[in-house]
């Protein structure tokens, strides 16, 4: 490496950025409190890497979830300046020289520091029967796979990209106001299965959709689709399910079950 390059790198390293983390240690804290850190600034450093720097060099007690570092595991969701983001997909260069404040994902209880309790979210994902319910499930393996055309796949492909990071629940004021709401990711996943040509479980899942706590708690704020790191567009899924639920309502008026 040339002397010039080393100097340039040194200049960047000399810059520092302030990171404020909302800490909560259940065994000793009554409520969360902010704690500030100063770390060397690199334009290519992600928020997750910044957290790892803090844990390795400044305070090993800071807790946060992470795994893949490439926006596919969905573990490192957190509030960056009050906006739900994946730590690995948000970069310091977009905030520098301003301070970055980090907080556990909104609308979820804080387990510790940046770690949230996701039980309610997981329960909702399970509740919508997120698996293909075939018309007849005695199809033998020797009969081959369930076939599907690219056009049939296109109908649900977008809604199948969810990584269960929970950012949309964090962005949803209706979930924040009322935790009984099924919520964006679970409803998008429900739409994904209902729109799959191989699935015959729509009638079962529509019972969930048709409830007040189903699609009808949604007021189309639309922020879920903005924060989604995978372009799933849960707001669109819910909107389409509202149309389906209305059709189902009309049918139900003439054919009560």
């Amino acid at each position: 490496m040339s002397t010039q390059a080393t100097h340039a790198q040194q200049a960047v390293v000399d810059k520092v950025i302030e990171i404020e983390i909302l800490r909560y240690r259940p065994e000793q804290d009554e409520k969360p409190f902010p704690q500030g850190f100063e770390i060397p600034y690199h334009p290519d450093m992600s928020i997750l890497e910044a957290l790892q720097y803090i844990k390795d060099h400044l305070d090993s007690s800071v807790s946060f979830r992470w795994s893949c570092r490439m926006a596919i595991c969905g573990s490192c969701g957190l509030m960056v300046n009050n906006i739900p983001k994946l730590g690995c997909k948000a970069f310091l260069r977009d905030y520098y020289p301003q301070k970055v404040t980090l907080e556990a994902l909104a609308n979820f209880p804080i387990e510790r520091d940046l770690v949230v309790v996701m039980d309610d979210f997981i329960k909702k994902l399970e509740e919508i029967k997120p698996y293909i319910i075939p018309e007849r499930d005695e199809k033998c393996l020797s009969e081959g796979t369930y076939q599907q055309t690219p056009e049939q796949m296109e109908k649900y492909a977008k809604f199948s990209m969810c990584i269960n990071c929970g950012l949309c629940y964090s962005a949803c004021p209706q979930y924040g106001l009322d935790k009984s709401f099924t919520g964006p990711a679970a409803l998008a996943l429900l739409a994904r299965y209902n729109r799959d040509s191989r699935d015959a479980g729509s009638a079962e899942r529509m019972k969930i959709v048709n409830q007040e706590q189903g699609v009808w708690s949604c007021t189309f704020v639309g922020y879920c689709s903005v924060v989604c790191p995978k372009g799933v567009d849960p707001a669109a899924a819910i909107q389409l399910l509202k149309v389906e639920s209305s059709k189902d309502y009309l049918i139900g008026m003439f054919k009560p079950d």
Partner: peptide
Amino acid sequence: YIRSNEPVFW
């Protein structure tokens, strides 16, 4: 599961 009457108003 309780069906909502919201479709009418929606």
